[in-house]
Computed example of a mutant assay.
Amino acid sequence: MDFTGFEVRKCPPTAMYIPNFITSEEEQRILSHIERTPKPRWTQLLNRRLVNYGGVPHPNGMIAEEIPEWLQSYVDKVNNLGVFESQNANHVLVNEYLPGQGILPHTDGPLFYPIISTISCGAHTVLEFAKREGTTAEEGDASVGDGDGDGDQAGRVVLFKLLLEPRSLLILKDTLYSDYLHSIAETKEDVLCDRICNYDLCETTYKMGDHLVRRAPRISLTIRNVPKTSKMKLKFC
């Protein structure tokens, strides 16, 4: 797919933002499946909960699990774009964010092929970016996590932001993957400002200074490739 028309040009390379990547019907099907996920499948963190599909990434290699058919169809939809170049996605991290919840500054790190794709469902959010410590710093004094959002907010400076609407697909790679931390602030409402870089690609027309509707529960599907996997493959019902 030619992403030329979807590239966010007001931030460092490379972010692609595709509004309405999935339909409202597909979004409702995803939310319905997530709602029915058995409680033991969830990992409860301090500021949100999550589910790994495809396996749990580990430095020694991910023991591959079969991704459920309902979810694999969206993985295939992303793979069909050629997002991961010569690779295919084999892992999905499902995060649930309630109003007031967020994720600390982090990079996804070396366990993953250096491209992130994220489908947003249910509600909007604003993704914030700060310079990773040790690169040609503007400022930014945040720890680098492992993709689960561990980090340190002390001293970080938000340089730019992306507004993620429901049903959108965001792709991050290149410098944005390696040299910047991304995070979601723990707030119940977002104010639009001139640091948001993708207004021109959004489905809705916004005016700076507007308050978005208060945050509602959001489900994100972060679809990635884990290069190092075990030959074992587990299947769960």
Results as ranks from 00 to 15, higher is better:
L234K: 14
V191N: 05
H182R: 04
P105M: 04
R49E: 01
P68M: 07
L31P: 00
S178H: 15
I22F: 02
T135Y: 10
R167D: 05
L127W: 01
S220I: 03
Q28M: 11
V94S: 01
E85G: 06
L127N: 01
P19H: 08
S220P: 07
L159C: 11
V144W: 03
L71D: 03
P19F: 03
S220M: 04
T14Y: 10
K235H: 13
V213I: 13
L192W: 07
L159K: 12
L164T: 03
L71K: 07
T14N: 10
D150G: 11
D194L: 10
V157C: 09
F129R: 02
S178L: 12
I30V: 11
R167M: 07
E26D: 15
L163G: 01
A64F: 02
L45C: 08
R36D: 13
Q101F: 02
M232R: 13
V78F: 04
L111A: 06
K235E: 12
N90L: 05
T118L: 09
M208Q: 14
T205S: 13
S32D: 12
V158T: 13
T229P: 01
D190I: 00
K10E: 14
E133R: 13
P68R: 08
K235F: 12
C11E: 03
N88G: 08
R48L: 08
C237I: 15
L234R: 15
E189W: 08
R48Y: 03
T135S: 13
A64R: 14
E26A: 05
D150R: 12
V56K: 11
H211Y: 15
T187W: 00
E128G: 06
K131S: 14
R48K: 12
Q72P: 05
F84N: 02
L31A: 00
K207D: 10
A89I: 02
Y53A: 05
I184P: 00
